[in-house]
Amino acid sequence: MKREPLLHPGLNLGSTDEYAHNEAEPVIFGFWVFLMADLVLFAILFATYASMSVQGQADGPTPTDVFDLPSAFIETMLLLASSITFGMASLALKYKADGLHLVFWLGLTFCLGAGFVGMEVRDFWVMTQEGAVPQRSGFLSAFFLLVATHGIHVTAGLFWMIVLLVQLRVLGRTTAVKLRLMRLALFWHMLDIVWVCIFTFVYLFGVAQ
């Protein structure tokens, strides 16, 4: 079967909703461009972290001292699972006419994402209790800024999800709401990509050295 042309990143609505499919092209592209700018932001934070984690420890806590690998693993699983559940939500948006599947998968994504944020906040709390505060060293400043920036992005995504769930109820599955959900999907998957870099280059690298 001939593939439908992909007009934009993420799941394309294709012939399930031709109007929205065409409307989506510039809107999703614009958001895609914005995500690229956001990626540069994270890249700079990573580059700063790369140097400060090695050169900026200031005889304070080292990565091995403060990183809780099991916790990072669970957070990774939660976020990865939430990416998959969001994929299911995207499929529901595209193929299922009733709203129930969509709301179910979005709700599940929200819980997993909230679990991720909750665990991360707990990790930070434990670190501060041990004296590993950002004010202690350059390494810790860089760590907290990088990981918290990601966490704040995820939290913003959670707020966005709630607003969209309300809009699904109030406005229905209009083209505008569909396009917003599609953009949130891109956002959510991108955050998981950033997290792959965080658990690898921050947590695993930190403990492995």
Partner: peptide, 23 residues
Amino acid sequence: AVAQIIVHFRFFLHISWYSHRDD
């Protein structure tokens, strides 16, 4: 990590050789 990033792009974001050239 690089492999997983590619997996995310390909399977979750659907970026592949079929994608729009601009993307």
